[in-house]
Protein backbone atom coordinates (compact mmCIF):
# COMPACT_ATOMS: atom_id res chain seq x y z
CA UNK A 1 0.00 0.00 0.00
CA UNK A 2 1.30 3.45 -0.85
CA UNK A 3 1.65 5.51 2.32
CA UNK A 4 4.41 8.09 1.94
CA UNK A 5 6.35 10.10 -0.62
CA UNK A 6 9.72 8.32 -0.25
CA UNK A 7 8.65 5.25 -2.19
CA UNK A 8 9.03 3.55 -5.50
CA UNK A 9 6.57 1.28 -7.27
CA UNK A 10 8.05 -2.00 -8.46
CA UNK A 11 6.29 -4.05 -11.14
CA UNK A 12 6.90 -7.61 -12.32
CA UNK A 13 5.45 -8.99 -15.53
CA UNK A 14 4.54 -12.31 -17.13
CA UNK A 15 6.72 -15.25 -16.06
CA UNK A 16 8.52 -13.18 -13.40
CA UNK A 17 5.24 -12.18 -11.81
CA UNK A 18 3.98 -15.76 -11.87
CA UNK A 19 7.24 -17.22 -10.51
CA UNK A 20 7.54 -14.78 -7.60
CA UNK A 21 3.81 -14.52 -6.85
CA UNK A 22 3.29 -10.76 -7.08
CA UNK A 23 3.01 -8.07 -9.73
CA UNK A 24 3.17 -4.79 -7.82
CA UNK A 25 4.91 -3.63 -4.64
CA UNK A 26 5.76 -0.31 -3.05
CA UNK A 27 9.24 -0.08 -1.49
CA UNK A 28 11.06 2.61 0.44
CA UNK A 29 13.94 3.82 -1.68
CA UNK A 30 15.90 4.32 1.57
CA UNK A 31 16.35 0.53 1.64
CA UNK A 32 18.36 0.63 -1.60
CA UNK A 33 21.79 2.04 -0.79
CA UNK A 34 23.06 2.95 -4.28
CA UNK A 35 19.52 3.51 -5.70
CA UNK A 36 20.32 1.41 -8.76
CA UNK A 37 17.77 -0.80 -10.51
CA UNK A 38 20.04 -3.86 -10.17
CA UNK A 39 20.12 -3.37 -6.40
CA UNK A 40 16.32 -3.24 -6.27
CA UNK A 41 16.26 -6.55 -8.13
CA UNK A 42 18.62 -8.03 -5.52
CA UNK A 43 16.60 -6.55 -2.63
CA UNK A 44 13.38 -8.16 -3.85
CA UNK A 45 15.21 -11.50 -4.29
CA UNK A 46 14.70 -11.93 -8.00
CA UNK A 47 17.37 -14.40 -9.01
CA UNK A 48 17.50 -14.44 -12.79
CA UNK A 49 20.27 -13.80 -15.30
CA UNK A 50 20.60 -10.06 -15.85
CA UNK A 51 20.71 -10.52 -19.63
CA UNK A 52 17.22 -12.02 -19.52
CA UNK A 53 15.70 -8.99 -17.75
CA UNK A 54 14.42 -5.83 -19.41
CA UNK A 55 14.04 -2.78 -17.18
CA UNK A 56 11.71 0.17 -17.64
CA UNK A 57 11.66 3.25 -15.41
CA UNK A 58 8.56 5.44 -15.62
CA UNK A 59 7.54 3.60 -18.81
CA UNK A 60 10.85 4.24 -20.58
CA UNK A 61 13.18 1.35 -21.44
CA UNK A 62 16.21 1.71 -19.17
CA UNK A 63 18.95 -0.50 -17.71
CA UNK A 64 19.90 -2.28 -14.50
CA UNK A 65 22.64 0.32 -13.97
CA UNK A 66 20.14 3.19 -13.97
CA UNK A 67 19.55 5.20 -10.82
CA UNK A 68 16.03 5.35 -9.46
CA UNK A 69 14.37 8.36 -7.78
CA UNK A 70 11.53 8.72 -5.29
CA UNK A 71 8.11 7.97 -6.79
CA UNK A 72 9.57 6.22 -9.82
CA UNK A 73 7.81 3.21 -11.35
CA UNK A 74 10.37 0.46 -11.94
CA UNK A 75 9.34 -2.52 -14.07
CA UNK A 76 11.27 -5.77 -14.41
CA UNK A 77 10.25 -7.76 -17.46
CA UNK A 78 11.24 -11.00 -19.19
CA UNK A 79 12.31 -10.99 -22.85
CA UNK A 80 9.43 -9.89 -25.11
CA UNK A 81 7.64 -12.57 -27.15
CA UNK A 82 4.74 -10.83 -28.90
CA UNK A 83 3.71 -10.42 -32.52
Amino acid sequence: MKNNASQIKVLLFAELSEKYGWDEKYLSLDLIEDKKAKSILKYININVAHQSIIVAINKEISSLEATVKDNDEVAFMPIFTGG
Binding site: F80, T81, G82, G83
Partner: peptide
Protein backbone atom coordinates in the same frame (compact mmCIF):
# COMPACT_ATOMS: atom_id res chain seq x y z
CA UNK B 1 5.95 -6.72 -37.35
CA UNK B 2 9.49 -7.34 -36.09
CA UNK B 3 9.07 -4.41 -33.68
CA UNK B 4 5.91 -5.98 -32.22
CA UNK B 5 7.81 -9.26 -31.81
CA UNK B 6 11.06 -8.05 -30.26
CA UNK B 7 10.80 -4.45 -29.05
CA UNK B 8 7.43 -4.18 -27.34
CA UNK B 9 6.34 -5.69 -23.97
CA UNK B 10 4.05 -8.53 -25.06
CA UNK B 11 4.39 -12.02 -23.60
CA UNK B 12 2.79 -15.27 -24.76
CA UNK B 13 1.69 -18.15 -22.57
Amino acid sequence: LEVTKFKVPFWKK
